[in-house]
Write a protein that binds this DNA or RNA. Structure first.
Lengths: 193, 193, 193, 193
DNA sequence: GATGAATGAGCTTTCATTCAT
DNA sequence: TATGAATGAAAGCTCATTCAT
């Protein structure tokens, strides 16, 4: 539920009241209890949806960029991340706050999600890299993915700190790093072959 | 006040009760009101102290690393950032949450802090770079700083997501990026001279 | 709400607690907030009702005494005032305290009420006097009304100070003054005609 | 203590806080407890002083007006009452509120005061009337005093309701009534002698 | 499905009061 | 005399939740 995430992102778990959430939806607080047993369940449901959305969005971006040149694929992932979070600002804030959620069940669910997301990402990127560079080593694969992750995290956190041109610069720098990464990789491979 | 930040990082603004904060300090809730007019003032005071600490810590790390080789200085800044946040976990969580604080006064104070921090960083780094590379252009200075910022943000956000070896890898990658950055810069300069 | 006025008359605004008011009604304090936003609104509502009751009661007494001899009408007004306040003792005390209410909104509302009440009284009495004494001057009308008001105020304040026979004496004296007033008026008119 | 009465007249007993009273005097709340055991004692003391002041003031006015013509003496009493209450507005409001004081001890003290005041007034006026009209009956004395009391109460309560010219009119009407009273009395006596 | 009415629990805050200094 | 610091008690109020309708 969007209202739940919005209120959560604005005021935190304890500050997001059933009343305000209900108001935003245009119903009365008592009505929420027809759909959810209690506040915690409402939030768990909203958070799961948030994480699922995020996962699906990342997968969509990945599959849509298939066929492009490999460096472009990684860059598209960054761009997709940025666009998704720029459009759904509320969700992004909620996503960030989740890290410090006071609901234990949510914390463990987030951990699971991160593990799953990482697994998917590693597998997808591994396959992709092996297709493009058949003789690539596992060590090199890990190095590339970890570099991508660092840059993606840098961009992600920048969403909260910068706006407009300043933020755009950060994204461009991340893209530049990625491009360099693959240029080097291509050179190395050429030498080897 | 540490208790305030700890409770805030654990439960958010509305979840951090005066009772729990007082308990953690070993006084009664009513006693807090002898020193602070209300909850909001208590938190504003705690947050200001948090941000001031952070600023001072960064300045300390910077000045202590003076004299080292330039690439090492930037790397030391990353290391210092990491160490500071690994030691004061509670403060870090609080720092992250501040971005979405429901108190307007805090939001504006955070904005001011970020502006000041950026100014200080740009000036310090600019001077440093000019000392090391007298013929460096403003464009180059900005590019370097922005790259550093992206990497620092990537490391910072990673604090929340990874632990142990996985996190250590991220830091090493950031250091690697920085080292590369200055290697290139040195090569460019050598060619020019 | 009677309980609100009763508690107010007994303990004043700050001494009338939501708990006691709720107890008197047989509900829990929290329930009051379903109907009123806060304490102040509850009291404003109660006070408005009090003043409206008072106004209506005076109008009722006035219209019921129509048809009597003019002196009797004024005397009936005094009697009606006394009866009303003797029956609703709590309300009377509340009415008196209103003059010094610590709620600014109530003070202004009371001012408005007094102005309205005065207007109604002047118009009603003016019409009445003109009907009975067609050649009466405005000056004379005002003089009569003001004398009535002084006596009514004297009786009203006496409610708080005297009881039983002592109070009854005060009322009789007021009636006597009024009777005298109209005897004189009748004599003056007879001479003129 | 003026501050106590002022705060009481503004906010009532429960609304007059030790803090505000102390602030008005320029000391700290804790310091009040050096002079008074608790809030109730402070107020009892203040109220006693208020009533004593009132009594003394009335006696002073009475003795100062001795020697004047008898009607003038009664009129002076009304004027004195008005002046005293117009000057010490705070005290007047406090005086009115006392009638509904939530402190039982104060209520009984006020009763005593009223009895004493009435006794003094009756004795003084009785003596005065007997001096001026040696053959006056007790019934007549009582009638005159009660009429005076009704008018004085009317004027007193008007203090709270009217201002400026409107109030001045009420006082003049009271004076007029008194003058009439004694004119009649003088005529009756002349006829008898 | 939805809600008006009610409430227990708990929150922030105030207040009278205490006591060592 | 005066007060800084502390606190138990209670105030006004909010909130998640319930339940009959």
């Amino acid at each position: 539920m969007g209202a739940t995430l919005r209120q959560y992102s604005l005021h935190g778990y304890h500050g997001a009241t059933m009343k305000n959430i209900a108001n935003e939806v245009g119903i009365k607080p008592a009505s929420i209890y027809y759909f959810y047993d209690n506040k915690e369940e409402l939030f768990i449901s909203a958070f799961q949806q948030l994480l699922d959305n995020h996962q699906q969005e990342m997968e969509r971006i990945f599959s849509e960029s298939q066929g492009e040149e490999i460096a472009r694929i990684f860059i598209s992932m960054i761009r997709g991340l940025v666009n998704h979070h720029k459009i759904n600002t509320g969700e992004t804030v909620a996503y960030i706050s989740l890290v410090n959620s006071p609901i234990p069940e949510i914390k463990t669910y987030l951990q699971e999600h991160l593990v799953n997301f990482n697994n998917w990402m590693y597998q997808s990127f591994e396959e992709l890299l092996k297709d493009n560079y058949p003789s690539i080593t596992t060590t090199a694969i890990n190095a590339i993915i970890q570099q991508y992750v660092l840059l993606a995290n840098g961009v992600f956190w920048s969403i909260n700190l910068y706006e407009g041109e300043a933020f755009e610069q950060q994204v461009k720098i991340a893209e530049h790093f990625i491009q360099n990464l693959f240029n080097e990789l291509n050179n190395t491979c050429k030498v080897l072959s």
